[in-house]
Design a protein around this nucleic acid. Structure first.
Ligand SMILES: [Zn+2]
Ligand SMILES: [Zn+2]
Ligand SMILES: [Zn+2]
Ligand SMILES: [Zn+2]
Lengths: 177, 177
DNA sequence: CTTATTCATGTTACATGATAACAAGTCAAA
DNA sequence: TTTGACTTGTTATCATGTAACATGAATAAG
């Protein structure tokens, strides 16, 4: 494990790194390219290799702001000539998660590309129950509230999972016009 | 679905309902009996039936302050003469969750008895990575922090999962003497 | 350059988690 | 007492996740 739970969270104030929420309309090509670049930098810094399967896995995750199941990823990889057995996908996904390039969504048993891989972070997730879109949120305030509460009973928090299910702006608007 | 996300959270200030954290040493027999009683009351109020499988499932969950996998519960049920097929356990567990008598732990793919079933609530969970013990925490402050953050991007939060992994007081003490 | 070592990729086989669909039994209201 | 809702059980199948092992590629020593 290389990433740390300590989150930067300055990221939301740096337009270059986090220009908008995933929910806001945006140039997604640029979004993909930017993340891929940052990912490459980060791996180089860590001395880890972005091999073809790994890169392709990241690209597949990056195609949309949605979480994908491991088998969905595997089907894509297999169709492109990579191995067709589960460990192929799980290993690539695990690698990406370990290096902070993807997140695992516990509620969904699924994975999603990290949108600001330049920073170690443990974000909160907003998952739209209607369109499956996903956004990362700087979780520091939320996490701190939890860590404080836990400390009252002597519990030492190490890793936190914060996932919200609900309606994204678009779907909320469509439901109630 | 009968339970609501709206949490009472007054519960921690009512010694009768939440005398102590699950981590603190306590008379667990009394703990079990109290929860079982409250569960009965609640089901009666809802017009739902606590059938033998359901009661036994709840009792099994209540034996420890740990989360149990569905198949672990199933093995126990089967050994006591109930059905030995997965739906037997999943249905009982689903019933308990629907009526606010048990929680599902997303990180663990497991279930745990609710410790204060007298109130609708969506607590945060503290999970000890060493001894697997589990505690419920009133999550209102944490949840509110998240709901506010989400609102800034126009997202409407409906359900929230908050689970922390770390060390309980006992295990933290043992690790660093 | 060659060999040793590590890391990456692929496989098979299996373990664990979850649900669909159907049959039979139970219970209470009409 | 019959109806209809609910409960329990089954079989069968799907979904998710790993262990263990063999082969191949990249890197590091020698
Ligand atoms: Zn984008
Ligand atoms: Zn949506
Ligand atoms: Zn107890
Ligand atoms: Zn512990």
């Amino acid at each position: 494990m290389i990433t740390s739970q300590t989150e930067c969270d300055k990221v939301t104030r740096l337009p270059d790194h986090e220009p908008h929420s995933a929910f806001a309309p945006h140039d997604h090509r640029a979004c993909e390219a930017r993340v891929l670049d940052q990912a490459r930098d980060r791996l180089a810094a860590n001395g880890a290799r972005l091999t073809p399967v790994r890169q392709r896995t990241l690209e597949i995750l990056l195609e949309s702001h949605r979480a994908m199941g491991a088998y969905e990823v595997l089907d894509r990889l297999a169709a492109e000539g990579f191995g067709r057995q589960p460990p192929v996908a799980y290993r690539a996904l695990e690698f990406l998660v370990e290096h902070g390039l993807a997140h695992r969504l516990q509620r969904l048993n699924a994975f999603a590309a990290c949108l600001h891989p330049g920073h170690d972070h443990a974000p909160a997730f907003l998952i739209c129950r209607d369109c499956d879109m996903l956004a990362e949120l700087p979780a520091a305030p939320v996490r701190d509230a939890l860590t404080d509460l836990a400390a009252e009973s002597g519990f030492q928090v190490e890793r936190v999972t914060i996932e919200a299910l609900g309606l994204c702006p678009a779907c909320a608007g469509a439901a109630r016009p």
